Simulated scan of single mutants.
Amino acid sequence: MRDNSSLDERILKSALQEFGTKGYNLSSTNTIAADAQVSKGLIFKKYKSKAELFYTIYQNELNRFLDEYRHFQKRGSKDVFEQIVDIIIWKGTYTQKNPEAANVLLEGIANPPSLIRNRLQESLVVLREMSISSLFSQINRENLRDDISREMFEKTLNLAIAGLQATYVNKNVTYETLNSVKNESIEFLKIIIRGMEK
């Protein structure tokens, strides 16, 4: 039993590395088998297809991501703007620490393999529930201009958040750097909101 467990671990570790660095289409089960020191036939016996192996990796990494996110959320702040920036920082840090896992999750969401597309899209429901957009309802909208619809409000905030992520969250930025711009980021979001007020 222990041998099977270590065998599975080797296959999954090699598959995560391969899918996470090359993407699904360019990944090779031959490379995964060689790296895990198993036969390609054994991989297909356990996982039926390359798509099923990718699905297993995706589900494992999604579950790990969700567990860590829920743990992070338990210590969250009360202020909605601080929560938004904390999530941006947390996601950036998570991606930095787990680049292969982040790449697999991104591909599963943005460009899922066609054989498992429907199954992967089921996970989007869970991810939407924990998205930053779910916090927008906590922002006071009483003073918004009449010409700002709910859709425009949320689109503007999403663009502002994407701008913060593009500016501050990249592979060369440390957690300390991200934390140092936290107050600046919160103020930026508040300025965006004030620009939509009467």
Rank of each mutant, 00 (worst) to 15 (best):
E68V: 04
I186N: 05
Y94N: 10
F44H: 09
S27D: 00
F72S: 04
F19P: 04
A51V: 11
Q17T: 15
L7Y: 09
S137M: 02
N170H: 02
L26P: 01
M1A: 10
T31W: 08
A33S: 10
K13V: 15
T31Q: 09
S131L: 03
V173S: 13
L124H: 07
T174G: 06
S131F: 10
L178P: 07
Y47D: 06
S180A: 05
D3W: 11
D8S: 13
G195C: 10
E129Y: 06
E68Y: 01
T95G: 01
I109S: 00
E18C: 06
E129I: 12
A162F: 06
L127C: 00
K78N: 05
P112K: 03
R75D: 15
A51T: 11
M130D: 15
K22R: 09
I193D: 03
S134M: 06
L16Q: 14
G108P: 02
G76Q: 15
D147M: 05
G163F: 09
L62W: 07
Q165C: 09
L106E: 14
L157E: 00
K22P: 01
A33H: 07
E82G: 08
L105C: 07
I191G: 12
V181Q: 11
W90S: 00
L178W: 00
N118R: 10
K171Y: 01
E197I: 05
R145Y: 06
L115V: 13
K78M: 04
S185M: 05
R64Y: 07
E197K: 10
S180V: 02
N118Y: 08
K45F: 11
I32N: 06
K50H: 04
E100D: 10
Y175R: 15
G20K: 10
A36N: 07
N118W: 02
N98V: 04
R119M: 04
L66I: 14
H71V: 11
R119L: 06
T174R: 09
R10L: 03
N25G: 06
K182I: 03
E142N: 14
R194T: 11
S134E: 12
S28H: 05
L135H: 08
N30E: 13
I192A: 01
I43R: 01
Y69W: 12
M130Q: 15
P113W: 03
R2M: 04
R2E: 11
L106G: 03
S27V: 02
L144G: 04
V125R: 10
D35A: 08
Y47R: 13
K198Q: 14
I43Q: 08
W90A: 05
V104N: 11
K91F: 09
I89N: 08
T21L: 01
K198M: 00
D67M: 09
S6H: 13
R64F: 13
S131Y: 02
T56K: 15
F188L: 14
G23V: 02
L16R: 15
T167P: 05
F81E: 00
K50R: 01
L42R: 14
G76C: 08
K171I: 03
L53H: 10
E82A: 05
L62M: 05
T93I: 14
S14Y: 01
G108W: 06
V173Q: 00
D146C: 01
T167M: 00
